[in-house]
Design a protein around this nucleic acid. Sequence first.
RNA 1: CGGGGCGUAGCGCAGUCUGGUAGCGCACUUGGCUGGGGGCCAAGUGGCCGGAGGUUCAAAUCCUCUCGCCCCGACCA
Length: 578
Amino acid sequence: MRYSQTFVPTLKETPAEAEVVSHRLLLRAGYIRKLTAGVYTYLPFGLAAIRKVERIVREEMNRAGALELLMPMVQPADLWRETGRYEKYGPELLRFQDRHDRESCLGPTHEEVITDLVRGEVRSYRQLPLNLYQIQSKFRDEIRPRFGLMRGREFIMKDAYSFDVDDEQAGVSYQKMYEAYQRIFTRCGLQFRAVEADSGSIGGSFSHEFMVLAKTGEDTLAVCKACSYAANVEKAEVKARPVVNQDAMLDLGRIETPGKRKVAAVCEFLGIGPEKLVKTMIYKVSGGDGQPVAVLVRGDREVQEVKLKNLLQATDVELLEDKEVFDLTGVPTGYLGPVGLKIKVVADHEVATMRNCVVGGGEKNYHLQNVNMGRDFAVTAVADLRQIAADDPCPLCGGELGQIEGIEVGHIFKLGTVYSAAMRAVFQDHDGQEKPLIMGCYGIGISRIVAAAIEQNHDENGMIFPVAIAPYQVIILNLGLKDAMITAAAESLYAQLQAQGIEVLLDDRDERPGSKFKDADLLGIPFRVTIGTRLAKDGMIEIRHRRDGLTVELMPEQAAEYLLSQIAQSYSAMSGHK
RNA sequence: CGGGGCGUAGCGCAGUCUGGUAGCGCACUUGGCUGGGGGCCAAGUGGCCGGAGGUUCAAAUCCUCUCGCCCCGACCA
């Protein structure tokens, strides 16, 4: 492609609306433009990167035996009512009526549609297993779209659905996808990690997330330094530690703590550490029994709301506002405690091991000391409810844990029969019995991968794309448009590389060298060839690696061979397979 | 939805408090010089000041309503 013939509106200045680096660079480099909140047009270079990712995904899905199809974006409400999700999915599901007042929605995911399709066509175990996938635009009416392609409302996603005869076969399908995902992200040239995950609102029993490691990640991962354990902190299990504190229980005491509401203030006032204190947090619960619940965790710990949600089998939990707490309990926040509390109380494991701790007094300006669970108050459940901390041991091997940030780019679930049972998608097994299909679902955020790749690979001058997903592999800068020798060399190399199947961009614009260098860096193209006055001076052209700045000088006739071998090397370094 | 902020030229912004000629930088057009990291000189083009209503002799500026966008929280590929 000739630069003068394409459409890459680069920006010298940074658009004000962009917060994260991938969003800023995608706008500046002319890869995307915003149409409206969370909805973007992919310009030619942005689309080229997307297509590269799609191609890798297709190849690996096909290799794993999945079959591509394409489902509609517009879906009838009735289908969603069958699984109860039309009501449950919430405002993220964009609903509308067509001219006949038929209720419809834009597909945020396609479990219902695929299950509807399969129940109509699959009758026998002999038609299974089946794994169907599509690459489709999805729409989720996010409360707050942000970060450009990272969290848009409209985004491109690959979603696959597997159908099996039993749990064991479903496990095989799951494992195949797990392996395909490993290959996909490796081939994309990304540093990533598969982690155990919460299965979230889609439901189901077992799940992994694929996380691109980047400082700007929205998720935090707990990763063992000794073994292979890695999990989203939402999920990372905190093992109940052995009780070390066998002190005798002391007499309960009431102490005045005027104006001391925060853990830190109470601790300072009483001269104790936060590990001697128990926090009481009250949550509003949607789903489950719907009753508000008080959660107890140690003073220096955080409640992990996903764990709480799972314990209560709730669809959502939300911390009560200060005023709501007072209305419910008559106690201002800061002085809440489990003693004498009238609502349901659940405690983190750790609280059960604590002796003689301090809790809120249940009235303004008072706390209680030497409080002991069991003697002074009762709880309805003791469970793993807090977020894993840096000093917690690995739940698998007991080793030391580290925490890193990640961007979720893929998620695989074992769904079981959640959808097939609700929608009566059944098959007849060997034994003649009718059974629900065992399902799995597997998502990859295609457009998000492009953003994540940039978050992970950039510098102050712009993007640095991995070769496999760069819109072009090579950019040739012709710095002597009016010089016949320079132009001839540039044109010749351009033709040679194209003949070799290399995707190459020739910067033939009548621009000053500075602009061309800046744009080349910004666009993130892995290899840059500079052909300028040095050709006349010493017969050399220059090839520079975008990632590390490594620069070599060569004679023009050596260039194509050099680039070919460098590109091949880059690919083999990130081949997901032999 | 709650909290904070912003809508003025394609982009980034000033002007708004204190009403009175709509401005700056970048980009764009033309000419010239220049030519290895966003160059220089000169001359230009481009605005219903988000929209509607109101106050006023006079509104980008004050008032009311409205639409849109961004940032912080709960959601997720």
